[in-house]
Simulated assay, not measured.
Amino acid sequence: MNATKQQHYLDLPNFFKPNLVKKVYRIPYQQRAVDAEAWATENHIKPASTDRKRVGLLLIDVQNTFCIPDFELFVGGISGMGAVEDNIRLCEFIYRNLGLITEIIPTMDSHTAMQIFHPLFWVNDRGNHPEPATMISLTDVQQGKWQVNPEVAYSLVHGDVNQLAQYALHYVQKLNDDGKYPLTIWPYHSMLGGIGHALVSAVEEAVFFHSIARKSQASFELKGSNPLTENYSVLSPEVLDGADGKIIAQKNTALIKKLIDFDRLVIAGQAKSHCVAWTIDNLLTEIQNIDINLAKKIYLLEDCTSPVVIPGVVDFTSQADEAFQKFAAAGMNLIKSTDIIF
């Protein structure tokens, strides 16, 4: 796409302060509702129901746990402040294009303590849990380097430790066979009911403002609560069946249809190398099964997403860039938040 710089459709509202994007704060909802309706009147913004072209904005996991410095899995990216910088641009994009975005769909990574990618699930022969950022391979499980913690079986599979151990082996085997990332142990994050689970305050404020101004309810999508599988993509868990072949999870077919039905779909969020890339890859697979030309209506905000980079430990920048080049080659549009797309 040969996008050019746009004359911004709307000015930024006075209450938006870029320096607050890295903070957690309370949204004054009632005042923002008043502001949004006045804003809509002043700028002649019509209800989303009147849109001739329906534009969706998919916000992937723009949550405190990934986007606020010092939270559990802050996505610093190459600059070290990636997610904060991304979200400043994202908020500006939402406000400046408020009258053109039909619906906003925020996804919410949603976890509890006992999940296959959290330390508690695994132990070594000394009874120690793996440290965050440990990658557990098929060989590790086959050789017993890492084993299922028998004490979690009570909560997860009614105490059947053998069943859980068989499943764990099946799980890493499946990841290996499908060419996916090895099982990564993450810090406890996006804990359901916790502060880390919430949307970034400035982004939540922009989403709420859009809902009121455009009379369009934001459509929240929770993912990742199944304890027996990772769920990087909002469209599908990493593993769908158990060792016995029985289904343990399913694709989000309703959301897939919703996204494909938009006239244009814009995608941003965290992290570029994981949940964003996996979601887009799943969406591309669905599109290829229907009509590859549908890829042309997908727009990826490259300056509103960053890869996972843990200095001295792991850097997924190249994997993220390779994924996005694959998406562009398939027909999707790689753009910046200041480009004309409407």
Rank of each mutant, 00 (worst) to 15 (best):
M1Y: 09
T4V: 05
Q7G: 08
Y9E: 15
L12Y: 05
P13N: 01
Y25K: 06
R32G: 09
A36D: 12
A36V: 06
P47E: 02
K53V: 14
K53Q: 15
V55L: 14
L58D: 07
D61F: 01
D61N: 03
V62D: 03
N64G: 08
I68R: 01
P69S: 05
D70A: 07
F74V: 15
G76H: 09
I78K: 15
M81D: 14
E85V: 11
E85C: 10
E85S: 10
E92K: 07
I94H: 09
R96D: 11
L98V: 08
L98G: 12
L100T: 15
E103Y: 00
I105G: 15
I116R: 05
P119M: 03
P119C: 00
L120M: 10
F121C: 00
H129M: 05
T139W: 03
G144P: 11
E151D: 15
A153D: 10
A153Q: 08
Y154F: 07
L156C: 05
V157E: 03
V161H: 08
L164R: 07
L164H: 01
V172R: 04
L175N: 06
D177A: 06
D177N: 10
D178T: 07
G179L: 00
Y181G: 04
Y181L: 05
L183Q: 09
S190D: 06
H197D: 11
V200R: 02
S201I: 02
A202F: 11
V203F: 00
E204A: 01
F208V: 00
F208H: 01
F220V: 10
K223C: 14
G224K: 04
T229M: 08
N231Y: 08
Y232E: 12
S236D: 08
D241A: 07
G242H: 04
D244C: 11
D244H: 06
T253Y: 12
T253C: 13
F262S: 15
F262Y: 14
L265C: 14
S273M: 00
H274S: 14
V276C: 14
E286Q: 10
I287P: 06
K297D: 12
D303P: 14
T305G: 07
V309S: 14
F316S: 02
T317F: 13
E322A: 14
K326S: 04
F327Q: 02
D339C: 03
